[in-house]
Amino acid sequence: MMAYMNPGPHYSVNALALSGPSVDLMHQAVPYPSAPRKQRRERTTFTRSQLEELEALFAKTQYPDVYAREEVALKINLPESRVQVWFKNRRAKCRQQRQQQKQQQQPPGGQAKARPAKRKAGTSPRPSTDVCPDPLGISDSYSPPLPGPSGSPTTAVATVSIWSPASESPLPEAQRAGLVASGPSLTSAPYAMTYAPASAFCSSPSAYGSPSSYFSGLDPYLSPMVPQLGGPALSPLSGPSVGPSLAQSPTSLSGQSYGAYSPVDSLEFKDPTGTWKFTYNPMDPLDYKDQSAWKFQIL
Rank of each mutant, 00 (worst) to 15 (best):
T251Q: 06
S188K: 07
R41F: 14
L267P: 01
E42G: 06
A3L: 13
D24C: 15
L222I: 07
W276A: 00
P272H: 11
T61L: 10
A3T: 03
S292G: 10
D65R: 13
G109C: 02
F278E: 00
Q104W: 02
F296D: 00
R41E: 13
Q84I: 09
E80G: 07
P170H: 08
A196Y: 14
S213P: 08
M283A: 07
S152F: 09
N281Y: 14
Y280R: 06
A29G: 07
E70A: 12
A17E: 00
G259D: 04
P31I: 11
S238R: 08
P147A: 04
L246T: 02
R69C: 12
F296E: 00
T123V: 09
Y261V: 01
A196E: 01
Y214V: 02
R82K: 04
V180A: 06
S238H: 08
Q248I: 13
Y261S: 02
M5K: 01
G151I: 09
S19R: 11
E70S: 08
Q105Y: 02
D130M: 04
N77F: 05
K93P: 12
R82S: 14
S34N: 05
S164D: 00
D134P: 08
D287P: 12
S49Y: 09
S81V: 01
S254C: 11
G231Y: 14
T159W: 15
S141G: 06
Y258W: 09
A158E: 01
W86G: 12
P224T: 11
S164V: 15
D130A: 10
A192D: 00
L16E: 00
I138G: 08
N6G: 08
G178P: 06
A196D: 01
G230W: 15
T194R: 11
T279P: 00
P190K: 10
F215D: 00
S124W: 06
Q228Y: 14
Y32H: 07
A247H: 08
G178R: 12
R98Q: 06
G8R: 06
R95D: 11
V160A: 00
I138C: 04
P145R: 07
E268M: 12
V66R: 07
P116N: 03
P190F: 11
S161H: 10
G259R: 13
S292Q: 06
V85S: 13
P272Q: 02
P197L: 09
P190N: 03
S223Q: 06
S213E: 01
Y11I: 08
R115F: 01
A293L: 09
M225F: 11
S238M: 07
S212Q: 06
P79L: 09
N77I: 12
R48K: 09
T159C: 10
T275W: 13
T44A: 12
E42T: 13
V23C: 03
R40V: 15
K277E: 01
P272D: 03
S223I: 14
S257Y: 12
R90Y: 13
L54P: 13
D134N: 08
S241T: 08
P172G: 05
G274I: 12
F296V: 07
D134I: 04
K93Y: 14
T123N: 04
L299C: 01
P33E: 05
P190T: 09
A166K: 09
P205S: 06
Y258I: 07
G259K: 11
A189M: 13
C132Y: 00
M26V: 08
G231E: 01
G230S: 02
A158Q: 01
R98G: 03
A207D: 01
S204K: 10
G109E: 02
A207S: 06
R37Y: 09
Q103T: 02
A158T: 03
G109Q: 09
A29P: 07
P240S: 04
Q96H: 02
S223D: 05
D130W: 07
L246D: 01
S252Y: 12
A200I: 13
K102R: 07
E168C: 12
Q100Y: 07
K270V: 13
V226R: 09
P165Y: 15
T129D: 08
S245R: 14
Q291G: 08
W163R: 02
F46C: 14
L253T: 03
C94H: 07
G231F: 14
A35R: 07
E268L: 14
S235D: 01
D24S: 08
L267E: 00
E168S: 03
R91A: 15
H27L: 14
P153F: 15
P7M: 11
T187V: 13
P9Q: 04
S249F: 12
C132L: 03
R43C: 13
S292T: 04
T154D: 05
F296W: 03
G148T: 01
Y191Q: 01
L179K: 07
L286M: 05
Y63W: 15
L78E: 13
I76D: 15
R119C: 01
A92W: 11
P147W: 10
C94M: 03
Q97H: 09
A192R: 09
T123H: 06
M193Y: 05
P244D: 02
T123P: 08
P170C: 03
P9E: 02
S257G: 05
G255Y: 10
Q101R: 10
V66W: 11
S161N: 01
T279W: 11
S182T: 05
L186S: 05
L186I: 03
K118E: 01
D265Y: 15
Q100N: 07
R48A: 05
R40H: 10
T155W: 15
M225H: 02
V131M: 06
R95H: 15
P153I: 13
I76E: 14
Y67H: 01
S292D: 00
P227N: 01
